[in-house]
Amino acid sequence: MAAATGENGVSGAMAVAGGAQRSRGRPSRKEAEAIDRSVLEAARESFLAHGFTATTMDAIAARAGVTKATLYQRYDDKVAMLRAVLHERVAAWSAVSNRRAVNRGDTLDKRLEHYARSITRWSRDPEVRSFGELIRECWGTARAVAEEMQTIRVTRMLDVIEKDIREFGPKAGVTAANPRLIAELFLGMIGGVHRYLEDSGQADDQAVAQLCLNQAVNMFVAGKSAW
């Protein structure tokens, strides 16, 4: 895969990076930011194309058009590089989720349905799936990073759902004794629906998936008296 792309501006960033290498002085703030972007983009492409184990810092530097010294000024090692890439992607995905959040609804039922759809949508996203495979590889080679990403992914979702259970639960006639536990059970249930759809070969049937998710949410909310 070529490192430069017109759409995301990496080609321009690499050009600036090359200019920064040729300059005897320190790069300007704009040049440094362009180098940062090109390095992250090169690392992301390399990790996704070759995996964590096969990717080297030399390869990332070459792909970004910077020297190894420039790369190591920013990241101590490949693990730090991977952590930066993953945090950047999580931030980007969170920004997209926040823009979609305006359609969450104003009742507990609607909000849980929204989260079920959102989790399903993200589980089908090609980039998210690719990073999921990368993280699974890291459990054996960069376990600390894999654990960190797993914690961030789950914790963020739990925080949002728990907050809504606390806020919208009473409006639905229920005050959960342990909102965090209810949020955890909800995520576990959605994960179970996804496994059922995968095992039954219906994961790609959006109509079936939506029906199953709605039924699961309805049953979950119907049992709110036990919360």
Rank of each mutant, 00 (worst) to 15 (best):
E137R: 00
E41Y: 03
S46N: 11
Q21W: 01
A17M: 11
Q21N: 04
P27R: 11
L134N: 07
R111L: 06
M1T: 03
L112F: 06
A84N: 10
A226R: 15
G51F: 03
P170S: 09
E33H: 04
N8K: 04
K110H: 15
E148A: 07
V154Y: 13
S23T: 09
D106S: 02
A209V: 13
S94P: 02
K224L: 13
H194M: 12
T55C: 06
E31S: 14
N103P: 01
G19T: 06
G201C: 05
A226W: 11
M219F: 07
A176Q: 05
E162N: 03
L158Q: 10
R129I: 10
C212A: 15
A116M: 09
V39K: 04
F168K: 13
I119K: 02
T175C: 10
R44W: 07
I161C: 01
Q202C: 01
I35G: 09
V128H: 08
A116R: 03
A209Y: 04
D106L: 01
M189K: 14
W227Q: 03
N218R: 09
K171A: 11
T151S: 08
R63M: 13
Y72G: 00
K163Q: 15
V16H: 03
D205F: 04
T67Y: 08
W93C: 01
G18V: 02
A32N: 09
Q215S: 09
G201F: 02
A146K: 08
Y196W: 14
A42N: 08
M189N: 12
C212V: 10
R136V: 00
Q21L: 08
H87F: 03
L187G: 04
L181S: 07
A15Y: 01
K68R: 15
R143L: 10
V90F: 15
E45S: 00
Q150G: 13
V96N: 05
R136N: 11
F131P: 04
T56I: 06
L181M: 12
S38D: 05
A142G: 08
I165A: 05
V160P: 01
A34D: 11
T67C: 00
A3K: 02
R37Y: 11
A32V: 06
S200K: 07
L40V: 14
V66C: 03
G132S: 00
M81H: 06
L40P: 02
Y115D: 13
W93N: 10
V145I: 14
A183V: 07
L211H: 07
G9E: 14
A146F: 09
F47S: 05
I182A: 14
G223W: 05
F168Y: 15
Y72P: 00
E113S: 04
H114N: 09
A3E: 10
T55H: 08
L185T: 10
H87A: 14
H50M: 00
E7P: 02
I161S: 06
G9D: 15
A17T: 12
V154S: 02
M189V: 07
R104A: 13
V160A: 12
G65M: 10
S130G: 09
E31A: 15
A172I: 12
N178F: 14
E148P: 00
G18M: 10
V128G: 04
A183W: 02
G51K: 01
A2Y: 11
L158Y: 05
I60Q: 03
T151A: 02
A34E: 07
R156N: 15
E41Q: 05
E147I: 05
T5K: 04
V66I: 13
L211Y: 03
V174N: 02
P179G: 10
D109I: 00
A80R: 12
